[in-house]
Design a protein around this nucleic acid. Structure first.
Lengths: 212, 212
DNA sequence: CAGCGGCGTTAGTGGTCGTTAACCTGGTGG
DNA sequence: CCACCAGGTTAACGACCACTAACGCCGCTG
């Protein structure tokens, strides 16, 4: 019943293994022979599928940036019941990003770690996609929390991305009961961070004596 | 009048520039000639000061992990007015980490990005220091928010580290007015995330209709 | 069956990089 | 004045690595 999963293409195998290896040891730390070995072929056989090692990284980064943006746009567009509820949209964005972070961990790692290893053209494209994605969030955050300036909202969005993308670090098994609990926890953390940023606009208020 | 800043040692120059370059282009992406050029000497001259390229990375990572832990222990020990106030300790931990993240950006980047390029011995040492630092936070977070289990608190701590360490990403100038404002914003975000994680323990509550 | 194109293979090549070797030099203490 | 040493220099070496060349196998189509 799955529409398009049964037979992964060679290209897809290669991309998947390359993503894992790049995330583990860094772009420069992985040789083409290793990538080939990971999919059962050896070394230069990869060049039948990709123009070079960098082309693999480019396709990975463009792919994930594009999918993140597309998913975000979709979620921002589909307002479930005709009611224009920005909080629900932000909620959906957070959930979508969490799904990405939990399911495509290697790509999330690469996404903000190996961007500078790309040629100018590809890097600009990826950066453009990333920027659009960020701006999408910024717009929604500004709607939900009007007290935040746009610059503040942007900083908050970056910070929350850092928060959500931290999942690779708690990869040690046994860290959390299960995927659902982790997702729920991240969701609370992210929304709580936004709310706290918007609540206390005065200096250092919002906690201290009030926290007790 | 500054007690120990005026004359940076060659070693310190090298470490500083190496940290910057490693953070910019990755450990494998930087050659020893570049590091040498950055401090005005050329290539193999570095070997008068370090046993090898990896030794520089090791010293950087051990150094920052140790300083983070030491600073955390100090802040956890000094209870300002004799009152055992966990919230104040957590507040201090957050501020200390923010100072680190804002002032030693390259090191923060390296700290969780190039750890795997170390030999077993050094890597174990760094990991041990990191673990102690995390556990320090976990303990305090559990005191401040008793509703969180230890595993949950640990996940929250990792996530908040990701949040605080996200500052390198908003390095684009003009992102935020100034250092103080950024620090204040990060502070609110971090504490708000902790509070939100502890507040809503039920499923998906805490927002939705309540968010409005 | 002939031809051919997709997909691999192994061998080789040019270049880069970390590291070592051998040598030089300016200041300093006896 | 001399020996020495910390801290440089350039040249060279060996390993690695991305990529190319040349070739082989197999399934398809006419």
């Amino acid at each position: 019943m799955s529409t398009q999963a049964p037979a992964p293409t060679r290209r897809e195998q290669i991309l998947k293994e390359a993503a894992r290896l790049f995330a583990e040891r860094g772009f420069h730390g992985v040789g083409v022979d290793e990538i080939g070995a990971a999919v059962g072929i050896s070394g230069p056989g990869l060049y039948r599928h990709f123009a070079g090692k960098e082309a693999m990284l480019a396709e990975l980064l463009v792919g994930i940036s594009g999918r993140l943006l597309a998913g975000g746009k979709r979620r921002a567009a589909e307002v479930p019941e005709g009611e224009r509820d920005p909080a629900a949209v932000l909620d959906s964005l957070v959930r979508g990003h969490i799904d990405f972070a939990l399911d495509d961990r290697p790509l999330i790692v690469l996404h903000d770690r190996e961007l500078d290893r790309l040629r100018d053209t590809d890097r600009k494209l990826v950066r453009s996609l990333q920027r659009q994605y960020v701006e999408l969030w910024v717009q929604v955050v500004c709607e939900v929390h009007p007290r935040l300036s746009e610059a503040e909202a942007r900083a908050c969005v970056h910070a929350v991305f850092g928060l959500l993308n931290s999942t690779p670090h708690l990869s040690r098994p046994g860290a959390l009961p299960g995927r659902a609990a982790t997702a729920e926890l991240l969701h609370r953390l992210a929304l709580g961070a936004f709310r706290a940023a918007a609540d206390g606009s005065g200096p250092a208020s919002g906690e201290g004596g009030g926290g007790v």
